[in-house]
Design a protein around this nucleic acid. Sequence first.
DNA 1: TTTGTGGTTATCGAAAACGATAACTAATGA
DNA 2: TCATTAGTTATCGTTTTCGATAACCACAAA
Lengths: 72, 72
Amino acid sequence: MTEAAFLKKLAGRIKELRESKGMSQQELAAKLDYEKSNMSRLESGLINPRIATLQKVAKALDVTLPELLTFK
Amino acid sequence: MTEAAFLKKLAGRIKELRESKGMSQQELAAKLDYEKSNMSRLESGLINPRIATLQKVAKALDVTLPELLTFK
DNA sequence: TTTGTGGTTATCGAAAACGATAACTAATGA
DNA sequence: TCATTAGTTATCGTTTTCGATAACCACAAA
């Protein structure tokens, strides 16, 4: 799997979890002190985020990091 | 948990898995095309790595990303 | 003593994340 | 029509990863 394909799947996983919680991108972004512009790019697979950023995303989504990173 | 503490635990997890496979830092670094100097810093918790880097680490250690990120 | 291996630390330049901000589109509702 | 909300896209400056390289330490084997 290419890096781009991997980031795409991760992006979809974040979007899926966010929507299942009924949150907007801006709500999620605000919850972890992340720019909404970057959140948009993150959910589009355009960013290769740092692990600490994903840790905050997981926390804001109320899931564990392994859960966030579990996808097909 | 602070970011620094989190990175320390991640570092320990990588070291633990690497040693359980009987690999040296340089062997692991070479396997994912990562500089040995950075591997040393990564295992010291001095680096907040990108998710794609950790994905390569997991692959080189023959574990899944969730497995790599599962620790106390 | 010399050589090799494993690991650490430092520096340099390039690339990319990230914060901050702005402009824009589309959809919804007053 | 106007305002609001959600999301996208772009730019700028700062910070940090990362590749590349070098120097260094400790230890063990020849």
